[in-house]
Computed example of a mutant assay.
Amino acid sequence: MNGLSSLVLFKNLSDETRLSIVMLLREAGELCVCEIIGVLNESQPKISRHLAMLRETGLILDRRDGKWIHYRLSPHMPAWAAAVIEQAFLSDRDKITAQVKNITRNQNTTGGKSVCL
């Protein structure tokens, strides 16, 4: 991640889907791929492709939990990149918080577990 340039960061964040993923992860901390798909209402292949691009540049990290993969923002990104993401989040905080609350609400109706098929 040491080689992250502003050009790479802004190219990643210039895509609406990737920006939405980053903003969701900023608010939620960590999300399963099925939760991201549900919030963004996009196909699994499209979301997976964008997650792979974000992972390749070092903006996000993943971890496997059984057959599910969970994503989170990388704590290793440069401070300047984290600051850009934070400012973008603050500009849309209400919308993003509402989206994450919907995930939490859905988990509450399913016993606290994500419903991934």
Score class of each variant (00 low, 15 high):
G3L: 12
L4F: 02
S5L: 01
S5H: 07
S6L: 11
S6F: 09
S6N: 10
L7W: 12
L7N: 14
L7F: 15
V8E: 11
V8M: 09
V8C: 03
K11H: 11
K11W: 09
K11V: 13
K11A: 06
D15R: 08
E16L: 13
R18V: 03
L19N: 09
V22A: 04
V22M: 04
V22L: 05
V22H: 02
M23T: 04
M23I: 07
M23V: 03
L25R: 01
L25A: 07
L25V: 04
R26G: 07
R26S: 00
R26E: 12
E27F: 03
A28M: 08
A28T: 01
G29H: 00
E30W: 01
E30C: 05
E30G: 01
L31K: 05
V33M: 12
C34K: 08
C34D: 08
E35M: 00
I36F: 06
I37L: 05
I37H: 04
G38A: 07
G38K: 05
V39H: 04
L40N: 01
L40C: 00
L40V: 05
N41L: 09
N41A: 11
S43V: 02
S43D: 10
S43W: 05
S43N: 07
P45H: 00
P45S: 02
K46E: 14
K46A: 12
K46P: 04
I47M: 02
S48F: 08
R49S: 15
H50F: 14
H50S: 10
L51H: 08
L51F: 00
A52H: 15
M53A: 14
M53F: 13
R55I: 01
T57P: 08
G58E: 00
L59K: 02
I60N: 08
L61D: 12
L61C: 11
D62N: 14
D62T: 11
R64G: 00
D65E: 15
G66H: 00
G66F: 01
K67R: 14
W68Q: 13
I69S: 09
I69E: 10
H70Q: 06
Y71T: 04
Y71R: 05
Y71W: 15
R72H: 07
S74R: 07
P75R: 11
P75L: 06
P75E: 11
H76P: 08
M77K: 10
P78Y: 10
A79H: 14
A82G: 10
A83I: 00
A83N: 15
A83L: 13
A83P: 05
V84D: 01
V84W: 06
I85T: 06
E86R: 13
Q87A: 14
Q87R: 15
F89C: 01
F89A: 01
F89L: 03
L90N: 09
L90G: 01
S91P: 06
S91V: 07
S91C: 06
D92M: 09
R93N: 01
R93F: 02
R93D: 06
R93G: 03
D94G: 06
K95Y: 08
T97L: 07
A98I: 07
R105S: 10
N106I: 15
Q107F: 12
Q107D: 14
Q107M: 15
T110Q: 15
T110W: 12
G111W: 02
G111P: 00
K113E: 15
S114H: 07
V115N: 10
V115D: 11
C116M: 07
L117R: 13
L117W: 13
L117A: 13
